[in-house]
Amino acid sequence: MKKLLFSLFATAGIVFSVNAQTTKISFESSEGYVLGELVGQNNDVSSFYDTDIDVMDTAEISDEKASDGTYSVKIIDYSDGGFGGIFLTSLNSYDRTSISFNVFVPSLNGSDNIFDLYDEDGNFAVEINLDPDGNFQFAGANDTDYTPIGTYLANKWNKIELKIDYTASTMKILLNGVVIHTTSYDSGGVGIGEIDLANTSGGTDTYYDNIVIQDLDALATSEVSNSKNKVRVFPNPVSDVLNLDSTDKVELMQLFDASGKLIKTFRNPEKSANVSNLKKGIYVLKVKTDKGTSSTKIIKK
């Protein structure tokens, strides 16, 4: 099956902003959603069916399945081969952006389950298809057909994530936390205009949940504290030896660069680490103890 190109830019208003570091949509009551018909619940999230928008009885807020909280959005199957789902606009973007969502396909041999991404100019950028046979397929802006890049399991929640570097025009695709494909990002755009989550009404409903858009640079340099795992790192900035002060047993230390790439692993370490051979810059030190895990931004001078 070739990719389905569908953009709602001609009919849906787009707002492009870069104010927050994380956007999360999980269709919960705390976000203003209620059980039932999706149309009319949020100005930036609505439904489409083929070329029509705001189509009733296409998508609904459901408590049948949920990966985060109580609700998810259900794309209703009519077994008529139509292309229906939801579209999201007014989404934040960053130089290096993570887009993730959870999807539940009840069984194989039913619908194609599709994610489409359009850039800020309305150009098609990426399509991912979880097909009826259990294949994970990808198509980029310049592709005329899908490329198989993995497989997925039905009747369980699967987390799909795209890590897009707009400055380098590269992209990584992850399935359940594992990188399964690295490729170029070819649309030419530098941000998110629209996301579509849909199915082809081929015999199965599809559930989507926990849509998260994050600034990867902010994630890579953020400090995460854990009240059950008090770890102090010093000196910071550091030139040679980094020391840890913790009353808990340190089991593992991992050092990541600002892009999130693992640089070095210290197994069963003492409460110090030699970082003299690192280049100057910002790193994240992840420390695992017998009480939990914490991450701290480290500056190498």
Rank of each mutant, 00 (worst) to 15 (best):
V231L: 14
N123A: 12
Y94I: 06
I86M: 05
N135H: 07
G203F: 01
D290V: 00
Q137I: 04
D248E: 12
T265Q: 03
K288M: 05
F27Q: 11
V284Y: 15
S239K: 04
F124M: 05
S30V: 13
F115Y: 11
T296Y: 08
R96V: 12
S295N: 12
E64D: 09
Y166L: 13
T23N: 05
L255S: 03
G203T: 06
Y118L: 12
S98I: 12
Y166G: 10
V39A: 09
F115I: 01
S239A: 09
K172P: 00
I75R: 00
N226L: 01
S259C: 10
N229L: 12
S62N: 07
D217T: 11
G13P: 15
D215I: 13
I14C: 01
D80S: 02
I192K: 02
N158Y: 11
A258R: 06
D209Q: 05
Y166A: 11
V103P: 02
L108S: 06
V34L: 14
L219M: 15
V45Y: 08
L197A: 01
S47W: 00
K286D: 14
E60F: 01
G140F: 10
D119T: 00
K301S: 07
D245P: 00
T293P: 03
S17P: 11
I213C: 03
T200I: 09
N158C: 09
V105R: 08
D196L: 15
G177E: 06
D121S: 13
M171C: 11
S184P: 06
K3N: 05
S62I: 04
P237R: 10
G32R: 02
N268I: 06
G202S: 04
K301R: 13
T22M: 04
D145H: 07
F101L: 14
D116A: 10
D57E: 04
Y207R: 09
F16L: 15
N274C: 09
E270F: 05
T11E: 06
V178Y: 14
T70R: 06
Y49G: 10
T151M: 00
V231T: 07
T151F: 03
F83Y: 06
V284H: 12
S29H: 04
N123S: 02
Y71G: 06
K2A: 15
E223H: 09
S79K: 15
F27V: 09
K228V: 02
L262A: 04
T89A: 00
V126Q: 00
S62W: 00
E194K: 02
N109P: 01
Y207A: 10
T183H: 08
L130S: 08
N158F: 06
G13I: 03
T265E: 13
D290M: 08
G32A: 07
I173V: 05
I164K: 01
S62Q: 09
T58H: 04
I282P: 10
S26R: 02
K2S: 15
G260F: 14
G82E: 08
E60V: 03
A125R: 01
A66V: 12
V231E: 09
R96C: 07
K279C: 07
K163A: 15
D145G: 12
